[in-house]
Amino acid sequence: MHRSRLVVAVVATAALSLLAVACGGDSESGGGSGSGSGGTELTGSIFATGSSTVEPITALAGESFNGENPGVDITVEGPGTGDGFKKFCAGEADIANASRKIKDEEAGLCQAAGVEYVELAIASDALTVVTNVDNTAVTCLKLEDLYGLVGPESDNVAKWSDASQFGATTQLPDAELKIFAPGQESGTYDSFVELALSKITEERVGEDPPKETRTYGGLADDNEIVRGIQSSPTSFGWVGFAFAEQAEVREIEVDGGEGCVAPSAETVADGSYPLSRTLYIYVNKAKAAASPALQAFVTYYLDNDEQFVSDAGYVPLPTEQLEASKATWAAVVSGGAPAETTTTAAG
């Protein structure tokens, strides 16, 4: 009695798993037949990943492109510049959005996987140094002051005025310094280190500093930074231009050696604002060569770039840089100049 029941149970289990396998097989063959499609209209799929800062611009471009080419499936996600490059270099994505240039080790990943790419500058952004609206004592900071406040030597700087110990030359208030700034995983952190700190760090500490900035509790996204800045009257931090413009914070002018400059579309465009950075998209060349839809999308993106960028609240690229991107892309599409196309003439 007991044994026969066991036999039945085993048979039933086997039958169930057979059924499961059969279903699996079915669905796979279904996938094969479903993917074939023809027609003169553009079809295919485009997958863009990378920076959450650039995400809205690419999303706007995709939305607009999809309106004219409904046969193209476009997916845009924004896990961050670093994560984006990982996926991009593994060949999972067609486009990587980036709020900074690709790093050497990331480029190495791409090379190891045989992924060739082209870098296209698409927008400008100003790293905006911000403080609380009530903090009227500070209106302009030199790069030396920024270094004194958050540079790698400044771990013990507890008050704004202490920054003078590490090279700050502006008379800063004798008030508590509360830092609300991006964490190290953020492209906004990397850009700030590069634009504001790295040169002075090299002069003061040497080529290989033990760390890039002082230690502080890094925040995950710009909205958190904005809330932190608003919460304390003597706060200090930096965010992307779009975040600073749309929040109630006080923007501090930055002096890169040629006088105080406030961040704005004009000062970013003419290059006078010292902390302006370029936003990029990276396109997988092999995928572009194989996909007319991807080619058409990137061309469309660059042709209407200024509109998407300003709709997303960012600063359009200076005309000559955008033209350089277009020229680089045109060369890729026509299959020319493969050696030159991995870099562009971006400021």
Binding site: T58, A59, P70, G71, V72, I74, V76, E77
Partner: peptide, 10 residues
Amino acid sequence: GTATGLLTSS
């Protein structure tokens, strides 16, 4: 991973 910026499907 999910789409967060844009998702169009034909």
